[in-house]
C-alpha cells in the first residue's frame, strides 16, 4: 500500500530525475538554455520532498531524524534548498548537472532503505534535537554545494593549465567566479557547522550529563572535520592559499564529511541508524 507520504516521496524522486535529464540535455544545446522544465523539476521536487518530510514528521509527532532513510532524505532536502536558491541566480548548467546527479543518486539510494516508523528513542526526545540537526544539516548543505562547485573549479583549472580543452571547456563558468562562490559557501557552512557542534554539545550535556566524549568516534571525527574547515580559513587568511590549493582543501573537507556519515552507520550511539541505542 502506498501511503501519501510514500507517493509524494516517489514523486520527488521522479521530478528530480526530470530536472537532471533536462539539465543534462541543455549541455548539448547550442545555446545555453535554461529550460522551464529543469527549473520546474528541481523546484517541484523540493516542494514534494518538503511535503513528504512534513507528513513523516506529523506521523511521528517529532523531528524526522530517527532512521538512516530520514537522515538521507533530510540531507537531500537541505542541499536541494540551497541549490534551488543558487540555481536561478548562477545559471551554471554544469553545476546543475553535477549536483542533481549526486542528489538523485542519494534519493535512489534511500529508496532501498527501510522506511518503517521505529519508536522514538528516549535520548532523542528533546527540544535540542531539532536545533542541533537543523544547524548541522544546513552546514552540510553549504559544504556539499561548495564541494560541487569546487569540482567544477578543479576541472576548469586543469583545462586552462594543461591547455587541454574538453567538451566542458565552454560550459564551465570563469575560474574567478567559481572560486568566489566556493568561498562564500564555506563562509556560510563553517559558522553553521560550529554552531551545530555547540548545540550538539549542549544537547549532550542535557541527556548524558557531559559536553563531549572523546571515546565516541562520531564526536571525534566531527571535530576533525571542523578542524579541516577551520584550517581552510586559516590557510586562506594567513598563508595566502588561493585557487587550486584552497579548493582542493575543501574537497578534503567534504571527504571527511562522507567519512563522518560512514561512521554514523557503524558505531553504536545515538548518531547510529543501524543499531538501536539502549538506555
Amino acid at each position: 500500500m502506498l501511503t501519501w507520504s510514500e507517493l509524494v516521496y516517489r514523486g520527488a524522486i521522479l521530478l528530480l530525475g526530470v530536472a537532471f535529464l533536462t539539465n543534462f540535455g541543455t549541455l548539448f544545446a547550442r545555446r545555453s538554455a535554461h529550460t522551464l522544465l529543469g527549473t520546474l523539476g528541481s523546484h517541484g521536487s523540493w516542494v514534494l520532498l518538503t511535503v513528504s518530510l512534513a507528513l513523516r514528521a506529523l506521523a511521528r509527532r517529532h523531528f524526522p531524524i530517527q532512521s538512516e532513510f530520514e537522515a538521507v532524505v533530510l540531507f537531500v532536502w537541505t542541499s536541494l534548498t540551497g541549490f534551488v536558491l543558487l540555481e536561478r541566480r548562477l545559471k551554471w548548467s554544469a553545476m546543475n548537472v553535477v549536483f542533481l546527479f549526486l542528489a538523485e543518486g542519494a534519493l535512489l539510494y534511500s529508496l532501498g532503505l527501510p522506511r518503517d516508523l521505529t519508536p522514538l528513542l528516549p535520548a532523542l526526545r528533546s527540544r535540542w534535537l531539532p536545533v542541533h540537526v537543523t544547524l548541522n544539516f544546513a552546514a552540510y548543505a553549504a559544504l556539499t554545494l561548495a564541494f560541487v562547485i569546487g569540482l567544477l573549479y578543479l576541472g576548469q583549472e586543469w583545462q586552462l593549465k594543461r591547455k587541454r580543452y574538453t567538451f566542458f571547456y565552454n560550459l564551465l563558468p570563469p575560474l574567478d567566479q567559481l572560486e568566489r562562490m566556493v568561498h562564500i559557501l564555506l563562509r556560510w557552512g563553517f559558522p553553521l557547522l560550529t554552531l551545530g557542534l555547540i548545540a550538539g554539545s549542549l544537547y549532550a550535556r542535557m541527556v548524558w550529563g557531559f559536553f563531549w566524549d572523546w571515546r565516541n568516534p562520531k564526536l571525534t571525527w566531527s571535530f576533525v572535520m571542523w578542524l579541516i574547515y577551520a584550517g581552510y580559513f586559516g590557510l586562506h587568511e594567513f598563508a595566502g592559499w588561493r585557487g587550486r590549493r584552497a579548493v582542493l582543501w575543501t574537497v578534503v573537507g567534504f571527504l571527511a564529511l562522507v567519512v563522518n556519515y560512514g561512521i554514523s552507520l557503524m558505531v553504536k550511539n545515538p548518531h547510529s541508524f543501524l543499531q538501536q541505542f539502549i538506555g
Binding site: 586552462l160 570563469p174 575560474l175 574567478d176
Partner: peptide, 8 residues
C-alpha cells in the same frame, strides 16, 4: 576568450 575563462 581565455581571459574570460579565468576572470569572467
Amino acid at each position: 576568450e581565455l581571459a574570460r575563462h579565468i576572470f569572467g
